[in-house]
């Protein structure tokens, strides 16, 4: 019975993941491989960034709130791209919140604990999902309609040039594990339902949910990747790597906010405030 329950949990989380995250890894890999009728528009310098404004704006007519379009209307390149990054973060946080609510047991937790789990978990989950949109050369943007090269991002002035390069380095190691969307659904749920976030009230309840997810993940990996014996321990190690990545990211964002003439979205301000 327990085995059947864990399989059901894996299925439920996979379904919730496909329901709430618009760009699955499977779809992103098709875009990255150029196997779509309209390949992504490649942004590799200032000229192509300007062109993206027209091209992507045409693609997105009727979507007035799209961050890429409004961000591209800003004057400075770095500010524009920083705003694009924020837009993607905010969009992903809203998707992750809906996904979290679909994790069995999450919605019954104390509301303050739900807030704490999201505050500490969303960026780790975001960088996990971002890896699906990355290859060694760049990053898919605007729901797969654009592709920004890694070299262009590295050529920005500091500190903006430091924003995404560590995420590329993480993504290259993480993508080497060759997880699919069903594996990622369980991994992202395990990131969110984590019993050792600071300030949690009901740790035992969260640990109970987390243990089920981790157990379901272990069984799912055995079935889905039977030849990769060490995949499960490798993936647990990635949880520690993600925590380090987020700590450094939060510091960098605070530095950008203090030293650059840029604003930070109120939702991201809430998350970063008193985080680490």
């Amino acid at each position: 019975t327990q085995l059947a329950d864990l399989k059901t949990l894996a299925r439920q989380l996979h379904e919730a993941y496909l329901r709430h995250f618009h760009l699955s890894k499977a779809k992103a890999r098709i875009f990255l491989a150029g196997k779509t009728s309209t390949p992504p528009f490649v942004i590799h310098d200032l000229d192509t960034l300007q062109q993206a404004q027209q091209i992507l704006a045409t693609h997105m007519q009727g979507d007035e709130k799209d961050g890429l379009v409004s961000a591209l209307q800003e004057r400075e390149t770095e500010s524009r791209l920083f705003r694009c990054c924020q837009h993607t973060s905010v969009e992903t946080v809203t998707q992750l919140t809906e996904f979290a609510k679909a994790v069995p047991g999450f919605a019954n937790l104390d509301l303050n604990d739900q807030v704490t789990l999201l505050k500490y978990g969303v960026h780790e989950a975001f960088f996990t999902l971002l890896a699906s949109c990355m290859n060694k050369d760049g990053l898919l943007v605007a729901h797969g309609k654009g592709f920004i090269t890694r070299e262009f991002l590295k050529s920005l002035r500091r500190p903006f040039s430091d924003l995404l390069e560590p995420k590329f380095q993480f993504a290259m190691c993480f993508n080497a594990l060759q997880l699919d969307d069903s594996d990622l659904a369980l991994f992202v749920a395990a990131i969110i339902c984590c019993g050792d976030r600071p300030g949690l009230a009901n740790v035992s309840h969260i640990e109970f949910i987390q243990e089920s997810i981790i157990h379901a993940l272990q069984l799912h990996l055995q079935a889905n990747h039977p030849d990769n014996t060490f995949l499960f321990p490798k993936l647990l190690q990635k949880l520690a790597d993600l925590r380090q990545l987020v700590t450094e990211h939060a510091q960098l964002v605070q530095d950008i906010k203090k030293t650059q003439d840029t604003s930070l979205h109120p939702l991201l301000q809430e998350i970063y405030k008193d985080m680490y």
Binding site: V90, T94, L118, E270
Partner: peptide, 21 residues
Amino acid sequence: LKEKHKILHRLLQNSTSPVDL
């Protein structure tokens, strides 16, 4: 926590609502 995380709180309590940039 509720006071300091009003938007997260709102996202948790409501179904998906747009978060404007």
